[in-house]
Amino acid sequence: MCVYVCVCVCVCERERERERERMAKSPEEEHPQNAFGWAARDASGILSPFNFSRRENGDDDVTLKVLYCGVCHSDLHFLRNDWGFTRYPVVPGHEIVGVVTKIGENVKKFKVGDRVGVGVIVGSCKTCEACQQDLESYCTKKIFTYGSTYHDGTRTYGGYSDVVVADQRYILRFPDNLPSDSGAPLLCAGITVYSAMKYYGMTEPGKHLGVVGLGWSWPCCCEVWEGLWAEGYCY
């Protein structure tokens, strides 16, 4: 019993030491892949050049060169710490469109050169009931594209950068007929609208839909229901 306890104590101490070493590393040293982005250092929300690093592409990962990234109002809230939990420095951006430059061994849905998108979530437990139903936004262990802690204990940084690495589960293929620049906001406001419409059966012809408030979701609603033959109203 004494030997077992001693071994456990030694193992725990080694883990704590590794954690201290990791915490001592700068954003540029955390991972082997160099990255460049625009980050806010404080609640002023002012963005400035920021050198950091991305993890190496894993077996289930896709690396993409960022082409466009939309600006969501939640980015502004996060930059200014309006919600009270921002950790600086922060690289925002969760409406990301890019071109695949590298894929992992287990990735079959994408290939180098594909145009893809990454939204607000880049990780989850993958095992809970919500994840099993492809409802990762309800997972209690979901990982946001920026401002979260990833599985390896390092911080996530968003799409205001030149390169992104993400698990294939959270990547979407961009249709050939959808422009990258105007299509990027669909990864947030667009999917918010479409998901609700799909869930409540509002994608069928002849339906009538009302939207309360005139935010960015409103023009997305217009585009979606126009394509689905629904009729919409704004209140």
Rank of each mutant, 00 (worst) to 15 (best):
residue 203 T to I: 12
residue 187 L to V: 08
residue 205 P to E: 07
residue 205 P to W: 07
residue 114 D to H: 06
residue 138 Y to L: 09
residue 177 N to E: 06
residue 161 S to M: 06
residue 145 T to H: 01
residue 173 R to I: 01
residue 142 K to M: 09
residue 93 G to A: 00
residue 206 G to P: 00
residue 209 L to A: 14
residue 97 V to R: 02
residue 167 D to F: 06
residue 162 D to N: 09
residue 123 G to S: 04
residue 203 T to K: 10
residue 92 P to Q: 08
residue 92 P to F: 04
residue 83 W to H: 12
residue 143 I to F: 08
residue 92 P to L: 08
residue 106 N to G: 06
residue 205 P to A: 05
residue 85 F to Q: 10
residue 108 K to I: 00
residue 187 L to H: 13
residue 99 V to N: 01
residue 208 H to S: 14
residue 101 T to A: 01
residue 98 G to V: 01
residue 85 F to S: 13
residue 162 D to V: 10
residue 84 G to D: 12
residue 110 F to C: 07
residue 94 H to T: 07
residue 176 D to H: 08
residue 150 Y to W: 02
residue 77 H to Y: 10
residue 119 G to W: 00
residue 128 C to V: 04
residue 116 V to D: 09
residue 111 K to P: 03
residue 96 I to Q: 07
residue 190 G to P: 15
residue 177 N to Y: 07
residue 173 R to L: 09
residue 184 A to V: 11
residue 138 Y to C: 06
residue 201 G to L: 11
residue 200 Y to C: 14
residue 134 D to V: 00
residue 139 C to D: 03
residue 163 V to E: 06
residue 195 S to G: 13
residue 167 D to N: 14
residue 197 M to N: 09
residue 120 V to C: 10
residue 192 T to F: 13
residue 198 K to L: 11
residue 127 T to L: 12
residue 121 I to L: 13
residue 166 A to Y: 07
residue 181 D to S: 10
residue 181 D to T: 06
residue 172 L to T: 15
residue 160 Y to G: 00
residue 158 G to W: 03
residue 179 P to H: 04
residue 209 L to H: 13
residue 128 C to R: 04
residue 177 N to W: 05
residue 76 L to Q: 04
residue 185 P to K: 11
residue 176 D to L: 03
residue 183 G to N: 13
residue 151 H to M: 11
residue 205 P to D: 04
residue 148 S to F: 01
residue 120 V to F: 08
residue 121 I to V: 10
residue 199 Y to H: 14
residue 184 A to R: 06
residue 145 T to S: 08
residue 145 T to Y: 00
residue 80 R to L: 07
residue 126 K to M: 15
residue 106 N to D: 07
residue 105 E to A: 14
residue 180 S to V: 09
residue 129 E to C: 02
residue 190 G to D: 14
residue 208 H to N: 11
residue 149 T to W: 04
residue 94 H to A: 00
residue 199 Y to W: 14
residue 174 F to S: 03
residue 114 D to Y: 04
residue 77 H to I: 10
residue 118 V to I: 03
residue 145 T to K: 00
residue 176 D to S: 08
residue 112 V to S: 12
residue 144 F to E: 02
residue 193 V to P: 09
residue 166 A to C: 12
residue 185 P to G: 07
residue 185 P to L: 11
residue 202 M to D: 15
residue 200 Y to A: 13
residue 185 P to D: 09
residue 101 T to G: 01
residue 93 G to N: 02
residue 199 Y to S: 15
residue 112 V to N: 11
residue 157 Y to C: 09
residue 173 R to F: 04
residue 113 G to M: 09
residue 207 K to T: 15
residue 149 T to D: 03
residue 195 S to L: 14
residue 192 T to K: 09
residue 151 H to R: 14
residue 147 G to A: 04
residue 85 F to C: 06
residue 139 C to G: 02
residue 153 G to L: 02
residue 126 K to E: 15
residue 195 S to W: 12
residue 154 T to H: 02
residue 198 K to V: 09
residue 102 K to F: 00
residue 156 T to I: 14
residue 172 L to G: 15
residue 183 G to L: 13
residue 104 G to M: 01
